[in-house]
Structure formats: structure tokens, C-alpha cells
């Protein structure tokens, strides 16, 4: 399907040499290297619809970049299959290259010694973009990213923010249907980050591009992504919307109410527990897996009690993801401790 990404059972195993410690160990390694297999990505499956922005999340070393490299055609999977805009990327790399754009963190694809516009012109020639189209697209990118103030500067003289903006433009100059962004805003200031987010939103909403984004910046995820895929130790942990993730890992809200009657009797509500009480101030929190959302809880508290003031504290996405990572880590450890041959599940 045009602009879609389909990933089925994708796996990638790397074989590395383990160096033994000490002089004798180093000699042994030289004579008889100890090769070990490391599973970077294991049986990962997900879909990204055309015009959707999906955030691929996970802690460092989770397998995000390896997954992106397989989807861009740089890496060949050990097992499974991927299709990007209908093309198997690692089998038809040049055809795939016309459909995709990519930015890998702070690695620039621009020519260090040339003014940015020259780099754009070389990419125009490589991708066979007609001149008029090239000019129009540069104009559009300039409106959104304010490139013209520095696009005659040599790349070596650009600030990080300027360079990443140029790299984003360079990745999209040939009008790709699918864009892979591996931590594109790392190290950038908040103003430029916001500009980049606005640019990405425009590319998804107005241009209908499919974007697969990896980032550790949860504000970015919150502002851009509707759906998130979480991987850890190369395995898919969760695939869902931000709301689903919050429900699963982030039910850490609190409702703080000031009662009109400081001596009123306070009891727990359905799925809501009383956390503490200090005179007229009472604090409620979620109780168990059937806890309501913070807004439902707010409604219940107001309906049940006469309050003079009420406030809510909701765990931000950073906290939610921290919880998700910790739980995923614990699940991985538990799985690793299950003896071979024993069932992995508890029931």
C-alpha cells in the first residue's frame, strides 16, 4: 500500500566477538575468538498507516535504530519481512530510496564544505527532482523552517539547530512518502524543537507523509504521535495509542479537593481511594485496575461532595514511560529467570 509500513516478525541477530580480560585472555581471544550471538530485534510486528506518525520508543539499546535500519534497507533482517510503501527495502534498496527520507540524529547527509543550497542541488540531481518542483519545495520548507537566512552558509559553519533543519529539508526534497527520523531533535534548544515539530506536523497532516519517529523526548511524543510502539530488549512490549499507554502504565493521578464542610465524612468512591486528609483538604487517587480516568474521578468527587476548590495532578508522559520501561524490564528479567522447558507464563 502506498506510504504504509508493514513489519511482520522482524528479527535481527548480530554476531560479535567477546574479548576476554587480561593479557592471557586477549591472547586466547586472538587465537580462538569467542563468538556470541546478540538478538537486537526479536519477532517485531506492527503496521503504520499512510499519513500516520508513529513513535517508536524504548530505552537505549532497545532495538529502535536497528529496526529503522532494516526498514531503510541498510540492514537485512535475520528473519521476518518488512514492506515500506510496497517495497521490501533490503531487497530493492535503490527503489526504496526514492520512497523514503531519513534523518539519523546528528549525522548529517549534507556536504560539510559546501553551502547548504549546493548540497540541496546535488541531492536534487541525485533524486532527479525537476527544477521547478525543487524550487517550490525549497520555498515551502523555507516558510516552515526559515532556511533562507543561512542556506548560503557552508554546512561546517551552521549551528546544530540550523544543520538539523537543513537535514530535515534534505531528507524531504525528493517528496518521499515515508520518513524515518531517528532522534532528530537530540541536543536542540526548545525553540528549534518546536519549529521542527511544527514542520513534522505539517508534513503529516498537510502532505500525508508517513513518519516513523524514534525519540527520548516525551514532549515530542505527546505533541506529535497518536500511536506509540514500545520495544525493549528487541521485543515489542506495547503497541497502542497514548491514552492506552497512560491507562496501562500511568494511572498515577491525584485529585485534591477542599471540602466546604471540613468535618464532612469522606469515604472511598468506586475505583477511587482516599489517600490522605488534612482538615478540609482531601486527596484521592486511583484504586486498582478498574480505576476511572482522572476526569471521571473529578466528576465523581464533585457530584458526591460539596467542594470549594479542586485540582488535579496527572503523571506526565515522562513518568508514564518510565513506569512502562521499568515494568518491561521486570518482565524481561522474569522471563529470563524461567528455566528452559518451563512455561513462560504464570497461569
Amino acid at each position: 500500500m502506498s506510504g504504509s509500513i508493514q513489519v511482520r516478525g522482524l528479527s535481527r541477530t548480530f554476531h560479535t566477538t567477546v574479548r576476554r580480560p587480561g593479557l592471557a585472555g586477549a591472547l586466547k581471544s586472538l587465537i580462538k575468538p569467542d563468538r556470541v550471538a546478540k538478538e537486537a530485534v526479536v519477532d517485531v510486528s506492527f503496521d503504520v498507516a499512510p499519513g500516520e506518525l508513529l513513535a517508536l520508543l524504548g530505552p537505549n539499546g532497545a532495538g529502535k535504530s536497528t529496526t529503522i535500519k532494516m526498514l531503510t534497507g541498510i540492514l537485512t533482517p535475520t528473519a521476518g519481512e518488512a514492506r515500506v510503501a510496497g517495497v521490501v527495502p533490503y531487497e530493492e534498496r535503490e527503489r526504496n530510496a526514492r520512497n523514503i527520507g531519513a534523518v539519523f540524529g546528528q549525522r548529517t547527509q549534507l556536504w560539510w564544505d559546501l553551502p547548504v543550497r549546493e548540497s540541496f542541488a546535488i541531492l536534487r540531481d541525485i533524486y532527479e527532482v525537476p527544477n521547478a518542483e525543487h524550487r517550490a519545495r525549497l520555498g515551502e520548507f523555507d516558510d516552515l523552517l526559515e532556511l533562507s537566512s543561512f542556506w548560503d552558509t557552508r554546512v561546517r559553519h551552521l549551528s546544530l539547530g540550523q544543520r538539523v533543519r537543513c537535514d530535515l529539508a534534505a531528507a524531504l526534497l525528493h517528496d518521499p512518502q515515508v520518513v524515518f527520523l531517528d532522534e532528530p531533535t537530540i541536543g536542540m534548544d526548545v525553540v528549534v524543537k518546536e519549529q521542527v515539530r511544527e514542520f513534522l506536523r505539517h508534513q503529516v497532516e498537510e502532505r500525508g507523509r508517513t513518519v516513523l519517529l524514534t525519540t527520548h523526548d516525551m514532549t515530542e511524543v505527546e505533541r506529535l504521535a497518536e500511536r506509540v510502539v514500545l520495544i525493549n530488549h528487541g521485543r515489542l512490549v506495547l503497541d497502542g495509542t497514548l491514552d492506552e499507554i497512560r491507562r496501562k502504565f500511568g494511572s498515577t493521578w491525584q485529585v485534591r479537593a477542599t471540602l466546604a464542610d471540613p468535618h464532612a465524612r469522606v469515604e472511598p468512591l468506586e475505583g477511587i481511594s482516599l489517600l490522605r486528609r488534612e482538615g478540609p483538604q482531601v486527596v484521592f487517587g486511583p484504586d486498582g485496575p478498574t480505576a476511572p480516568t482522572v476526569h471521571q474521578a473529578l466528576k465523581q468527587v464533585i457530584e458526591r461532595y460539596e467542594v470549594t476548590d479542586i485540582a488535579i495532578d496527572e503523571a506526565d508522559l515522562e513518568d508514564v514511560m518510565r513506569t512502562a520501561y521499568v515494568q518491561a524490564e521486570a518482565a524481561s528479567s522474569a522471563q529470563a529467570e524461567v528455566p528452559s522447558g518451563a512455561p513462560a507464563g504464570g497461569d
Binding site: K69, G73, A97, R107
Partner: peptide, 10 residues
Amino acid sequence: GTIVYWYLRP
């Protein structure tokens, strides 16, 4: 690591 871009172009 910019060699990857050599393999990402047509």
C-alpha cells in the same frame, strides 16, 4: 556513521 546515507540514495 554518515556512510549510511551513501546506501540510502538512488
